[in-house]
């Protein structure tokens, strides 16, 4: 197990090294995303400002908590953009074109290779900006967290990044079973966009079922923020862990069964 992890780490390091070399071949391709992602983030913030300038509270949260929430969601999104978004996004094409063949014949997890093959340093500023917003939100909300609170927050963040990753892989693994998943990706985009603006505490009834259990984007930034605010009840925490665990299991199952069903493409 330890040897396997060491090997995976070495492969990962080499993939990242290769990706950097590849990006640096084209100067505009390397520097461009820093500006583009930064600009996109600024636009999102302005939209948020415009929408919430006349709203004092959402649920029990005031402006500081909401800024903390936005920063946390942006951080989850930015971590995805830096590490796995661009790699996993290619999965449907690789399944349909049969390009997955060559991943399956190498003695390394195809999912690991796909995940980290397209790391994107252009989104690193997005991570930095998200951290600034989190700090500013905490300041506005008057939170002075202790080390334990920060650790708990980071723990929840890690669980929610895993959930975000699970959702990405799961939705794209549908292509092992069906010819296309295009509409599912649109659904994913729409749910993400909504849940980036509205925290999970704003959902009730059927909306809560949809956005906390079926498309659990409503949990993603909400639980880490609730944990650092000291608002997270143990029932909600258990629910969050159960959802993350269930989606991780479902994703692993869909991926493994998908590989068995994989029929490549005629050449």
């Amino acid at each position: 197990m330890r040897n396997r992890m060491k090997k995976n780490f070495r492969v990962l390091r080499e993939l990242i090294r290769i990706r950097f070399q590849h990006l640096m071949l084209f100067r505009l391709g390397f520097f461009g995303p820093f500006f583009v992602d930064g600009s996109l983030f600024a636009v999102q913030l302005m939209v948020f400002r415009a929408v919430y300038s006349n709203v004092d509270r959402i649920g029990t949260w005031g402006e500081g908590e909401m800024i903390l929430f936005i920063g946390t969601f942006s951080l989850i999104n930015a971590v995805g953009m830096v590490f796995y978004f661009f790699g996993i996004r290619q999965l449907p094409d690789k399944i349909r074109s049969g390009e997955l063949d060559l991943y399956l014949t190498k003695p390394v997890s195809p999912l690991l290779r796909l995940t980290f093959e397209q790391v994107n340093p252009g989104s690193l500023p997005l991570m930095a900006m998200s951290l600034c917003i989190i700090w500013y939100g905490a300041h506005r909300a008057g939170i002075v967290p202790r080390a334990g609170d920060v650790l708990l927050y980071l723990g929840w963040l890690a669980v929610m990044i895993l959930l975000h990753y699970d959702m990405m892989v799961l939705i794209r693994s549908v292509c092992f079973y069906l010819v296309t998943n295009a509409r599912l990706e649109q659904l994913e985009d729409a749910a993400l966009e909504l849940c980036m603006k509205l925290p999970g505490i704003a959902f009730y009834g059927i909306y809560r079922v949809v956005f906390c259990f079926l498309l659990p984007y409503g949990l993603m930034a909400t639980l880490p923020v609730q944990s650092i605010l000291g608002e997270l009840r143990w029932q909600t925490a258990l629910q969050g862990l159960a959802v993350a665990g269930a989606f991780t299991g479902l994703t692993a199952c869909a991926w493994k069964r998908g590989l068995r069903r994989y029929n490549s493409a005629s050449s």
Partner: peptide, 16 residues
């Protein structure tokens, strides 16, 4: 890797 060199690909395969 189309844009890189054969040596770059070989290095990845060395680790794999």
């Amino acid at each position: 890797f189309y844009e890189l060199t054969a040596n770059d690909t070989l290095r990845l395969f060395k680790e794999i």
